[in-house]
């Protein structure tokens, strides 16, 4: 296993690949690249009072990736942002959830980078 960290759960991808370390590293690489631009976009939309519909679409997109490589708090917070933005409400809660995502993601990121292809 390329990464052992309490915040990062690679069980889904490990099970799918049968523990193929090369494949897991490849998937981590795609995840890091996808999340980097995706999180920047989400953060920009939320902090600069973007349209709820755009926030919903972006959170929904990232939720899909965050369900594959799980980082504690990230998936649940994206689900929350996705739901609130869809209902066009709770901007303060959305901002709190974004802060949690950024904190946990930034803590996990060095380990993800070390474990990528």
């Amino acid at each position: 296993m390329p990464i052992q960290h309490p915040l990062i759960d690679l069980s889904y991808i490990s099970e799918i690949s049968g523990g193929d370390e090369g494949y897991i590293r490849e998937v981590i690489g795609i995840f890091v690249d996808t999340m980097a631009t995706g999180m920047l976009k989400l953060s920009d939309l939320i902090r600069n009072n973007g349209d709820f519909e755009d926030i919903h679409k972006q959170a929904h997109f990232l939720k899909s990736s965050a369900g594959i490589i799980k980082i504690t708090g990230v998936y649940d917070s994206l689900v929350k942002i996705d739901g609130l933005a869809k209902q066009r409400t709770g901007l303060d809660e959305i901002k709190q959830s974004l802060n949690l995502i950024i904190t946990n993601y930034n803590e996990a990121l060095p380990f993800l980078i070390a474990g990528r292809a």
């Binding site: 998937v27 795609i30 996808t34 997109f61």
Partner: peptide, 13 residues
């Protein structure tokens, strides 16, 4: 799928 990660997982499976 527009998500490269999902493409990768689905393709592999």
């Amino acid at each position: 799928d527009d998500n490269k990660l999902n493409q990768k997982i689905l393709g592999f499976v």
